[in-house]
Design a protein around this nucleic acid. Structure first.
Length: 950
RNA sequence: GCCGAGAUGGUGGAAUAGGCAGACACGAAAGCCUCAAAAGCUUUUGUCCGAAAGGGCGUGCGGGUUCGAGUCCCGCUCUCGGCACCA
């Protein structure tokens, strides 16, 4: 083995040396316009402030105990490659990394072992930092933190207080300080809920009124209580089966006083501003679906022989004439009030559920619905329900229609009540068929099915057809297209005082309390009356107390009646405090819930901008510089944010919400946190099970004619995640040991497009290793380690390849197509190898080194030094292609005869079409294919090809 | 069920302003070097017929538009992801 061959050991030496040097020199530090991270005037760093900026980050990781496997760094390497490229291409690049370190695993480990979560967390972070350093990730080392740092969560708490201290002004469509709302109440500009003057309200009453407006508020509301975990959960953390996403415990709806975030106030803006973002369409779609805005109308139906009325929400007010019955959610509050003593005469048996009177029918149905698990409801979509015995009056034609309760109507959406139009709604159709309810066609089918619903297989649903059978005193929709009919009827209802156009959302307010230890404490205390008071900014952060027992009290998983007991409640010395909140020292009780995991990740991208600022979460000048709106990003935000699709809804929606509140309150110039989002794919892996179904170590499985064996016995292959229990984990450290970090980086980038998931294949890594070896061997003498570069000029053909490569690599880099960029570099390298028998021409060696640098930075730095340069190449200009070498003198045209390539002709690149055509027809292979026939048509696509038709 | 994304050699993947399908890499085969092995290097490698020259067929399936379709249109199949009675 030659002593200076590029081996793993040689690579390890180079990598270590350059990582040390980058650290010593602070190579990747990005200057801020102002504050502690602003550069000294006149330095190279200061000059970079005049360049266009680029802010590139990944979704920061939760530092788990298992460390990184080869799947995790895919996005980190991609953003690193891009940011290294951009530094060379003339940008001031901010690239940073932190840790989302509050979370359950550390707490659960603490519960099991008694080891403080902070210790576990810090150890894991150290391990992650070590692994990331070893990969050569070029972060600004001054801009890093964990969400668990008191200096960080101080600001998380500060933001919480600003949100609590704000209300949403629906007219101005923005958040405003609560003091401005108080002023409106005081002046009488805004009436109090019960009309009394503000001054006459007691302190408790005022607090209650304001809580009805605050963007962070406490409410006694139905929440998802999970006794098995001992905590409440956000809607998003509950599976469709009604169980906890984590742990799969049953979840119950219970009324509990909890902190909420009024994210619903921002539903429209969160929806509308998606249009300004450069995000993958599926992610936008998921957010749109989650917000679930739908336009429609509320319509009030009187209850027959009764004083009450029921308001329904419908998106199809145009079908009001087709309403033949009404359905309330079983839990609807009006149900009990409208039940008659006995069934009306002639009620069909199927409607009563076999009960003797409406009250017992409703009670029985409710019981039956409650007994069904969510899963059973999912599986069985057959419509069930029961008649209430009451009738509603259709306001448009006075018709009496029966009122049912059924679980296909959800209490939490719209008004919890619907008008049923079985002819034009699939669900209503199914219900009507099951209960033999009448149907009336009020939208003429345009698919030839006829207008008699009794002959239909399903409802006719269309927004393009025209209305019919919809005329009564003073109102007719007949002949109107659906959209026009909606407008007409909505106006009519409003004029009659029977309804109004309205918008509803699926989005609910965000439950923000967790009964956990390892989270941000709320900066809230309660006085003797139970009133909440903010902890003054000057007393932040409210730090977590030391406790002996980190677990919330958990209960029998099925005990729906249990109540939360957070771990912080046990820290009695901490809970009970004496504070002076401006009216002298008093006793207070601290809030013992903590914030949910998402809190820190709702704003961390802002803290990288000014991580050491002690006076503000970020200096406005720094935020405006890095994230402010630009011509192409009109709502501002991070230039590139890379992370997994699993955060498509929750993290990204919550972070957008907080960002908008902070914008409204004047703290930020940007309206959106993340302008461009890219979802990196997953690196997955094969796992193998033996005949008993146990996993066997994947690395020892061998492939043998169409199957796989482990220790000679056949095993089954499955494809999925990497995990300890699947015995298929491959770590970046192993790859660094075997090949070096540069090889690993190149391999991860050349596996395929960033967005696509792909299987890990360790044995393929060697291809990237050979590539770097060829680069090294071309420029360095393997026997002496001396550079073997010559100054002889290269042939035109090589020079053209060089410039085509430069041009192509720049294009691919900008489009994040790193796999094809690497392929182009390999092609250039393979040419260099061919022409370097007597030494590598500098004309190719230098630009190749610079272009390889984003992918294999350590190797490139080493080669750059060997080429005779001082200092890091980090800020060397990326090569620029010369236009004149991008076009060849001659072009080879493929010639098609009847669609098949039959020959090729070489023609000067500036030849006109006639010349090209003549050359094509003169080619002997083409002539042979023509076999004497006269071309009917000859098509010359300039610079591309010739097509002859005979 | 609804919405979205996708399907290209043995494998990962190239090629979208409709213009030479399979770049680049892995694997495989043969060879060079070596006492030998490893590493490295060279050549071949979509498939079928053929000794070769050459030819036929080929981008999930079936149609269509076009001189020309992986790319556009219509109709399917399958895979993955999201939502799940949202009125």
């Amino acid at each position: 083995m030659p002593p200076f061959r590029y081996t793993a050991a040689l690579a390890a030496g180079i990598e270590q040396r350059w990582q040390d040097r980058w650290e010593e020199e602070g190579t990747f530090r990005a200057p801020n316009p102002t504050g502690p991270l602003a550069p000294a005037p006149g330095t190279a760093e200061a000059a970079r402030l005049d360049l266009p900026k680029s802010y590139v980050i990944d979704m920061f990781p939760y530092p788990s105990g298992a460390g990184l496997h080869v799947g995790h760094p895919l996005g980190y390497i991609a953003t690193d490659v891009l940011s290294r490229y951009q530094r060379m291409a003339g940008f001031n690049v901010l690239h940073a990394m932190g840790f989302d370190a509050f979370g359950l695993p550390a707490e659960q480990y603490a519960v099991q072992t008694g080891q403080h979560p902070r210790k576990t967390t810090d150890e894991n972070i150290d391990r992650y930092r070590g692994q990331m350093r070893r990969l050569g990730l070029a972060y600004d080392d001054r801009r890093t933190f964990a969400t668990t740092d008191p200096d960080f969560y101080r600001w998380t708490q500060w933001i919480f207080l600003r949100i609590r201290d704000a209300w949403y002004d629906a007219e101005q469509r923005r958040a405003r300080p609560i003091a401005e709302l108080v002023a409106q109440f005081e002046s009488g500009e805004r009436a109090t809920p019960d009309g009394r003057p503000w001054a006459q309200l007691s302190a408790v009453e005022r607090a209650a009124v304001l809580d009805g407006h605050r963007l962070a508020y406490r409410s006694e509301a139905p929440v998802n209580w999970c006794p098995g975990l001992g905590t409440v959960l956000a809607n998003e953390e509950v599976t469709p089966e009604g169980r906890s996403e984590r742990g799969n415990f049953p979840v119950f709806r219970r009324d509990l006083a909890q902190w909420m975030m009024r994210i619903t106030a921002y539903a429209d803006r969160l929806l509308d501003d998606l249009d300004t973002l450069d995000w993958p369409e599926p992610v936008k779609m998921m957010q749109r679906n989650w917000i679930g805005r739908s336009q429609g109308a509320r319509v009030t139906f009187a209850v027959a022989e009764h004083a009450g009325s029921v308001t329904v929400f419908t998106t199809r007010p145009d079908t009001l004439f087709g309403a033949t019955y009404m359905v309330l959610a079983p839990e609807h509050e009006l149900v009990n009030g409208i039940l008659p003593e006995s069934w009306p005469a002639g009620v069909p048996a199927a409607w009563t559920g076999g009960a003797t009177d409406p009250a017992s029918a409703v009670a029985a149905y409710r019981k039956q619905a409650a007994a069904k698990s969510e899963l059973e409801r999912q599986e069985n979509k057959e419509k069930t329900g029961v008649f209430t015995g009451a009738y509603a009056v259709n306001p448009v034609n006075g018709e009496r229609i029966p009122i049912f309760i059924a679980d296909y109507v959800l209490a939490g959406y719209g008004t919890g009540a619907i008008m049923a139009v079985p002819a034009h709604d699939h669900r209503d159709f199914a219900f009507a068929r099951a209960f033999e309810l009448p149907m009336r066609c009020v939208v003429t089918p345009d698919d030839g099915r006829g207008d008699d619903p009794t002959t239909w297989d399903d409802a006719f649903v269309s927004n393009d057809a025209a209305c019919c059978n919809s005329t009564h005193d003073g109102i007719s929709l007949d002949g109107l297209a659906v959209p026009a009919a909606k407008q007409r009827i909505t106006e009519w209802l409003a004029a009659q005082g029977l309804g109004e156009g309205t918008t509803t959302y699926k989005l609910r307010d965000w439950l923000f309390s967790r009964q956990r230890y390892w989270g941000e404490p709320f900066p809230i205390v309660y006085d003797e009356d139970g009133a909440a008071h903010p902890v003054p900014d000057s007393m932040l952060p409210v730090e977590l107390p030391e406790v002996d027992d980190f677990s919330p009290v958990t209960f029998d998983a099925d005990d729906a009646t249990s109540s939360p007991m957070p771990p912080l409640a046990k820290a009695t010395d901490w809970v009970h405090v004496t504070l002076d909140l401006g009216d002298g020292p008093k006793r207070y009780r601290r809030e013992t819930n903590t914030m949910p995991n998402w809190a820190g990740s709702c704003w961390y991208e802002l803290r990288y901008l000014d991580p050491t600022n002690a006076d503000a979460l970020v200096d406005p000048a720094n935020e405006a510089y890095w994230m402010g709106p630009t011509a192409s990003a009109t709502t501002g935000g991070v230039d590139l944010y890379v992370g997994g699709v699993e955060h498509a809804v929750l993290h990204l929606l919550y972070a957008r919400f907080w960002h908008k509140v902070l914008f409204d309150l004047g703290y930020l110039a940007s309206v959106e946190p993340f302008h461009r989002l890219v979802n990196q794919g997953y690196v997955q892996a094969y796992a193998y099970t033996d005949e008993r179904g146990f996993y066997v170590p994947a690395e020892q499985v061998v492939e043998a004619d169409g199957g796989w064996t482990y220790e000679g016995k056949p095993v089954r292959r499955e494809y999925g995640k990497m995990g300890k229990s699947l015995k298929n984990v491959v770590t970046p450290d192993e790859m660094c040991d075997a090949y070096g970090a540069d090889t690993f980086r190149v391999y991860e980038m050349s596996m395929g497009p960033l967005e696509v998931s792909r299987p890990w294949e360790t044995r393929a890594v060697v291809g990237s290793f050979r590539f770097l070896q060829r680069v090294w061997r071309s420029l360095v003498d393997e026997q002496t380690g001396a550079p073997r570069v010559v100054d002889t000029p290269v042939d035109d053909d090589t020079r053209r390849l060089l410039h085509r490569t430069i041009d192509g690599v720049r294009t691919e880099m900008a489009g994040l197509r790193f796999n094809t960029a690497v392929a182009k570099l390999i092609e250039l390298t393979n040419r260099l190898v061919q022409i370097s028998a007597d030494g590598a021409p500098r004309e190719v060696a230098e630009p190749l080194t610079l272009m390889v640098a984003p992918f294999a930075p350590h190797l490139a730095e080493e080669l750059w030094a060997l080429l005779g340069h001082d200092g890091s190449l980090t800020y060397q200009a990326f090569p620029v292609a010369e236009e004149r070498w991008l076009t060849a003198d001659a072009v080879v045209y493929p010639v098609q005869v009847n669609g098949k390539v039959r020959g090729r002709v070489e023609v000067a690149s500036d030849a006109d079409d006639a010349t090209v055509q003549a050359a094509a027809l003169a080619d002997e292979k083409v002539a042979a294919a023509l076999a004497g026939r006269t071309p009917r048509k000859v098509i010359v696509v300039s610079g591309r090809m010739v097509s002859i038709v005979v």
